[in-house]
Design a protein around this nucleic acid. Structure first.
Lengths: 339, 339
DNA sequence: CTGAAAGCGCTTACAG
DNA sequence: CTGAAAGCGCTTACAG
C-alpha cells in the first residue's frame, strides 16, 4: 500500500496525491477529495522513512536520560511526552543507566535516525573524554540543522538549556537549615562527577561557610545515585559515628533510602536528626515524616526543554532558562534538640 | 556525508562500502579495512531512513503506555529499555495519558515509522469501538510482518502477551486478609473499564465470596487511577461512614494516596484499619507503615514482553506468558481489632 | 568477492 | 493547479 496505489485509485498523479496528503500545496477541491477518499478506502499509511528521505523533516525527537524508572527522570519525561503529543511528535527515549559511553552511542543512533531534535535530560559527567566525544557528535549534528537542548548540564556543551538552580537551591536549603538552628551537618552525596551533585553540594557548602559553619570532607559520604545508595550512605554515616543534627541528601531518591536507614537504626526523624532532600519527586510528601526538599517543577522542565528544542533559532546564541528551586519545609526537618 | 563519499574515499564501489558497513557479506580484508578507515575518517553516520527504505529492517521498537511518569509504567519501561539496549534497539515511547483515541493514533504513527515491533503496555479498555479501531491498525501491521506484544490486556487482541495474574493476585490477597481475620472490606478502585481493575476486583470479590463474605457495591469507590484518586476514594469511604476493617486499593499508587487520606482523617494504619495495594512499586516498602501488596516483577515484565516481540514467530499462535503476583505482607495490614 | 543498476516510497523543483 | 521526472541514501539481486 503506497502513495502510488492511492494516486492510481484516485485517478491523479503521484505528485498530486503527495500534495494532498502532505498538505504542502493547494489542490483543486474535487481532486483533493478523491485522494482523501482513496487513502481512506485503502487504509493508506505513509512511509515515514520515505518521507524523511525525500526531504520532509522528521517527526521524531530523541530523548536521552539516565534512567526512566527513576522518579526524577520519569517526572521530566512526563512533561516531554505531553509536549510531544501537543506537537504531534514521536519521542525516541533512551536510558543510559549512567554509562557515559552509552550516552555517546545513543547520540550517534539518534543522529542516524535523523531526529529533528535531541534532548539530553540529566546531569552531565565531569569527564574530559566524554565531553570531547559528546561534542564530536553534537557539533556535526547541529551543523546539519539538528536541534539540541538539555536539562541540567552545561560545562562543555554550548546548547540551549533548562538549568535548575542547583547551586542556589543547595544554598537556600542550607540557609533554611541554619535558620532552624542547625550547625552540624552531613551530606549523603551521589557521584561527584555528576555536575548536578557537584553544584548542589557546592551551593550547600558555600552557604554554610558564609555562616561560618564548616562541612569537613568526612561529613560527606558518596554513594550511588539511588534509593539503596541513600540507605548505604546513611548507614555509613552512622557507622562513622558522625554526630550531625541535619542530613542533606542530594536527591530525594537518596533521601528515601536514608530515611529507611535511619529508622532501621532506631533514629527518629526529625527528633533525633533532621533530613532534607532535593527535587520534590511526588512521593516525598507522602513519606513519614513528609520530606523537606528543594522543589523543582519536573514536568514543566520537560515541557520547557522541548519548547527550547522546537523554537526557531536562526543562528542565535544558546539560550539558557534557569529554573528556580523552592525550599519546601516539611516535618522531616525541625530545630535541633538542645543537648 | 553519505555512503557514496565513503566509497569514493575508500576507492571502492557503493555496493562494497555498503556490504562492509552493513556486515551483510564477506569482503576482501584490505578493502574492508579501507572502507572502515574512510568511514571513521569522515565520521560517517548511516541514514537510518535510507536503510529502512532500502529494505533492511528497522531498529526501532515502539512502546505505548498510559503514562511514563507513573511508577508502575516507569518500572516496566525500565525493563524494556534494558532489553532494548541489549539488542541494540531504539525505543519510541508514547504516553497516551489514558486516552483510547491517542492510543490508536500512536499505533498509526508507529506503523508509519515501520517499527519492527510494537509493545502495548498497560491495561486495555473495555470498549468495543476502541477494540475495533485497535484491531483495524494491528491486523494490517501484523500481516505486513510487524510484531506486537502486550502487557496486561487480552480480551479482543490476539497477540503475544505477558499477563500479570491480576485475578489470582486479587484472590490471593483477599485470602491473606481473610486469614488475618478480616470480614469487613472496602475497595478503592480505579475506572472499571480498565481490564486490570476489573480483573483484580473480580478476583478479590470471588475469594471473599468463597469465604462467605460479601462485598456490597457501596463498599467499592471508583476514582481515577492516581495518587489523588486514592486519596479521594479513601476520603469518600470515610464520608460514607463505611466501617471496614480492611481496605484494598487496586494499585499501589492509589494506596499511597489512601494512606495519606487515612492519616489526615486521624485513622491509624493498621491499628484502626488495614490497607493493602497491588503492584509493589519500589516506594511502598518505604512508606510508614510499609504497604502490604501483591508484588509484580515490573522490570522483568518489561524484559519479557520485549523478548516476546523479538522471538521468531513463523506463524505460530499467540503466546501467553503469565506472571504470578506474590502477596507480600507488610505492617500496613494486621488482624482487625476486636471490638 | 566486486560492481553497475534497479528499486525502496516519498517530495519537490521544473515545466506546462 | 497538475504531472513527469529527478533525487533523497541506502540495499540487494544480478552479472561477472
Amino acid at each position: 500500500m503506497t502513495l502510488e496505489d492511492v494516486a492510481r485509485s484516485a485517478g491523479v498523479s503521484l505528485a498530486t496525491a503527495s500534495r494532498v496528503l502532505g498538505g504542502t500545496a493547494r489542490v483543486r477541491e474535487d481532486l483533493r477529495e478523491r485522494v482523501l477518499a482513496a487513502a481512506d478506502r485503502l487504509s493508506y499509511i505513509p512511509n515515514a522513512h520515505a518521507r524523511a528521505l525525500a526531504g520532509s523533516s522528521s517527526q521524531v525527537v530523541g530523548v536521552i536520560c539516565h534512567d526512566v524508572s527513576d522518579p526524577y527522570f520519569a517526572g521530566i519525561a512526563g512533561g516531554v511526552m505531553r509536549a510531544a503529543a501537543a506537537h504531534g511528535l514521536l519521542v525516541m527515549l533512551a536510558s543510559t543507566f549512567r554509562d557515559p559511553a552509552q550516552e555517546v552511542a545513543y547520540l550517534s543512533m539518534l543522529r542516524a535516525q535523523r531526529a529533528r531534535a535531541i534532548l539530553l535530560i540529566g546531569s552531565g559527567f565531569e569527564d574530559r573524554a566524554w565531553e570531547r566525544a559528546m561534542n564530536a557528535e553534537l557539533e556535526p549534528y547541529l551543523r546539519s540543522g539538528g536541534r539540541v537542548a538539555v536539562v541540567s548540564r552545561h560545562r562543555a556543551l554550548k546548547v540551549d538549556a533548562v538549568l535548575p538552580e542547583n547551586r542556589a537551591g543547595g544554598a537556600a536549603l542550607a540557609r533554611a537549615m541554619l535558620d532552624l538552628g542547625h550547625r552540624d551537618f552531613a551530606v549523603l552525596s551521589g557521584p561527584r562527577t555528576l555536575t548536578t551533585v557537584a553544584d548542589r553540594l557546592a551551593g550547600f557548602r558555600e552557604a554554610l561557610a558564609e555562616a561560618g559553619v564548616e562541612l569537613p570532607d568526612d561529613r560527606i559520604v558518596e554513594e550511588s545515585f539511588t534509593r539503596d545508595g541513600g540507605y548505604a550512605a546513611a548507614t555509613e554515616l552512622i557507622r562513622r559515628g558522625v554526630r550531625a543534627t541535619c542530613l542533606f541528601a542530594v536527591t530525594d531518591v537518596m533521601a528515601v533510602g536514608a530515611l529507611a536507614a535511619l529508622r532501621d537504626h532506631g533514629l527518629r526523624v526529625p527528633q533525633d536528626v533532621s533530613l532534607a532532600g532535593f527535587d520534590d519527586i511526588p512521593i516525598v510528601r507522602d513519606l513519614t515524616p513528609p520530606l523537606t526538599t528543594v522543589a523543582l517543577p519536573l514536568a514543566e522542565m520537560g515541557e520547557r526543554v522541548m519548547a527550547l528544542a522546537l523554537r526557531e533559532t536562526r543562528g542565535s546564541r544558546a539560550r539558557i532558562e534557569r529554573v528556580g528551586g523552592e525550599v519546601i519545609l516539611r516535618p522531616s526537618t525541625a530545630p535541633p534538640r538542645r543537648p
